[in-house]
Simulated scan of single mutants.
Amino acid sequence: MRIAMGVEYDGSGFAGWQWQPGRRTVQEELEKALGRVADEPVRIVCAGRTDAGVHATAQVLHFDTGAARRPYSWVMGSNSRLPPDVRVLWATPVPDDFHARASAIARHYRYVILNRGMASALRRRQLTTVHLPLAVAPMREAAAHLLGEHDFSSFRAQGCQSRSPNRYLHFIHVEREGDRMHIDICANAFLHHMVRNIAGVLIDVGTGRQPADWARQVLEARDRAAGGVTAPPDGLYFAGIHYPAAFGLPRHPIFDHLPADARRYSPAECRENSISLPSNSG
């Protein structure tokens, strides 16, 4: 039986998602808990691996098991054995052709900024503080240069192992709510550090250090050295995955902003080396 799960976690206490010898990881904690519920070893596959300090509100994983458990039992049994900074939100049986990573059509990240003179005492590891005032309008103008399919070499980490730097960015929404600012980014897939590097560029534009057109110049350079600083991991959240409706999995309403044509492509066509999709105004 193949089971899909939705998971959230506070990444501040982890060395990242993936197993690392001698270091605390989200994958290790989940596999230990699920193994105890299943009474057998469990190996999980996630929709997208996150780095140290990065959080998730809607991570999705799958695993195969011979154990027969109700969805409620998977959720409650796992949570009773997990540390308080990891929680399973839902579980459901899925067909054998479901794959948490390869079946995904689009992924959504949210970058959260506290824009005020003083850092937060309560959420210092859950958001990034920018002390200088941020202007929303130039950040939105800069973000518009990144929409569509591009070579995002300027926004990938030097150690990124992806075979192709091409990605299709469906939309970037920059919104302010009081002293908080949210940058929501949706793409078919992401390169290593791509969201944090985009956030770094938009922050420099928002503070006035760079003009809005600088985002286009960085993109066209196709060289990481042309980009700005990598924004800290604290404000980054893996916030949603969009799957074909046939799988019947929970869906974040932000994916309503996807172009209609983007939702019609098969998972195989929207994997790492995506085909071109219709442009989106964002």
Rank of each mutant, 00 (worst) to 15 (best):
S80Y: 11
G159Y: 04
R81I: 01
G22Q: 03
T25D: 11
G227I: 09
A199I: 02
L114C: 06
S154G: 12
H192N: 08
Q217V: 08
W17I: 07
R167D: 05
L147V: 11
D234W: 06
T65Y: 08
T65I: 09
I185G: 01
Y72R: 15
E29D: 10
P259N: 05
A268E: 15
R263K: 14
A212P: 00
A106M: 07
E28M: 10
R216Q: 15
M181L: 15
S154V: 04
T57Y: 15
S162F: 10
L127R: 14
A47V: 09
V37N: 04
C46Y: 00
L219Q: 08
V42C: 08
R167G: 08
E8A: 13
S162R: 14
R216E: 14
R224Y: 06
G22W: 04
F14Y: 08
A106K: 05
T92E: 11
R81C: 08
T207M: 06
G240A: 00
V112K: 08
E141W: 10
L249N: 02
V26Q: 05
G6L: 01
C46R: 03
I203G: 02
R110L: 13
S154D: 05
S103Q: 02
A135E: 13
W17T: 05
V45I: 10
R209C: 03
A260I: 04
Y9T: 06
R87M: 10
N166F: 15
H252F: 07
R264T: 12
L134R: 11
M194W: 05
G178N: 00
Y168Q: 12
H145W: 13
T128K: 11
L122V: 13
L277T: 01
A104Q: 01
D234E: 15
L219N: 05
L114F: 09
F171I: 03
T92H: 10
T50S: 09
S162T: 13
F190M: 12
H242S: 12
S80N: 13
Y111N: 05
L191Q: 09
